[in-house]
Design a protein around this nucleic acid. Structure first.
Lengths: 232, 232
DNA sequence: CCTCTCTGCCGCAATTCTGCCGCAGTTTTG
DNA sequence: CAAAACTGCGGCAGAATTGCGGCAGAGAGG
């Protein structure tokens, strides 16, 4: 995953400027919003990797934004607020945010917490790559060598094709939606269109077909894909 | 996973008692240590699900514990400390901890942050749990794969047919009116006519018949439909 | 700088889905 | 018994979705 994308919502433009300055200096891509509604709408258009949300905003307040986003995504959320009472913090954390910072806060601390969150997510997802190879039909998906083999023959998958096939294989008992694939394989903030999944699936199918593998990627019409042990 | 195990290290016994009390009340299993070395050794014996570590401790201090643990595990770590300066916080977070709380802190906030961390980990790695398939007669309606199977054979239902059949199966004990179907399956804002339900039911019947399934969609005259285990 | 691979996007054709129509058959009502 | 209301069914066509070849920008490597 390339550059991480962070959305910030705060009605104080000064704060926005300071924070985004620090975050950009760390190499993150930043988009700012002055109210919650704008952030949510932008998120629906393009998901971000992390959100920084102020509690007190005109229109949708931070709590509402948090709740709304949580219904559609597991993106990490940091709430910042001038309200520094225990109940406030607890409510914020309980609603689904990952951190709660009190204004005035040090921009460097925010940066540290952002990094900490990204590190946590990476650590959570890394161990799965060391698992034993997955088998579907007559193909073997080996996370260690990052190779897909069919009856011993290497199928020359690219990194992306491998990741998609692995995700589908790991979830072979259910259909996965295009959005889920984008979320879990491309990463939260891929700016790509939904059809990008079709492209990769297209290429996966082509290679599976060429190898005459007893594995198919079925289309679930209007939803996504499902991997099955084909009959050919 | 069953009960989560939390290790706490702090040289103040009062703190240990208070924190562990709150955490146990939340259903966590807790083990306490009065110095860092003991915690690390216990962790080597049996890994915990989360660590709460004080910075200032005799022997191994919190920073050292954090660094040591991080070399062997990605377990979530919350650092608590009486040192409340910006550099302290940043160092703590940078060394690999997931959170940094300043003493004196509210036990309830600690609990909220513990829960928040566990929630984050679950969101990151829970590949989504499977739903229980519905069985009616000799057919299986699997919401995970979005397939309807009859004695193992896939019946190739479309998304709409699937949704209608699933709804009727979920309410198999009573008849379902056309209006209810439109409301719950099509969605309240649908501008379609009532007869659209008949169309979909028509197609469902056709497929059930073709598969010789022991399931029928009965008509409730002047009202709607009901699913039954047929006698054929 | 050049080359090669990867991967997202475009556009078109093919496929699939689904609401609607009309008619015939069935049930209810008067 | 006749009329009205309702349902089953085949067929149709618009709309949405998907498959696929081709293309080009980005990035890696030499």
């Amino acid at each position: 995953m390339g550059q991480k994308l962070i959305y910030i919502a705060d009605d104080e433009v000064n704060i926005l400027r300071i924070i985004s300055g620090f975050l950009e200096k760390e190499g993150y891509a930043v988009r700012t919003f002055t109210d919650g509604k704008a952030l949510v709408e932008a998120f629906r258009q393009q998901a971000a990797d992390l959100l920084v949300i102020d509690i007190m905003m005109p229109g949708l307040d931070g709590y509402a934004v948090c709740t709304t986003i949580r219904q559609i995504s597991s993106v990490p959320i940091i709430i910042v607020s001038a309200k520094d009472t225990e109940p406030d913090r607890i409510v914020g954390l309980t609603l689904g945010s990952d951190d709660y910072l009190t204004k005035p806060f040090s921009p460097l601390e925010l940066v540290a917490r952002v990094k900490s969150l990204f590190r946590r997510i990476e650590m959570d997802q890394a161990p799965r790559d060391l698992q034993r190879p997955l088998r579907v039909g007559d193909i073997v998906i080996d996370p260690n060598t990052k190779q897909v083999t069919c009856r011993g023959q290497d199928l020359q998958f690219t990194a992306l094709e491998f990741a998609v096939l692995k995700y589908m294989a790991a979830n072979r008992r259910r259909a996965v939606s295009r959005e889920e694939l984008l979320d879990k394989v491309w990463g939260f903030a891929s700016s790509v269109e939904t059809r990008a999944t079709d492209d990769t699936v297209k290429r996966i199918r082509k290679k599976l077909r060429a190898a005459r593998a007893r594995v198919e990627v079925e289309t679930v019409w209007g939803f996504g894909f499902r991997i099955t042990e084909g009959d050919s």
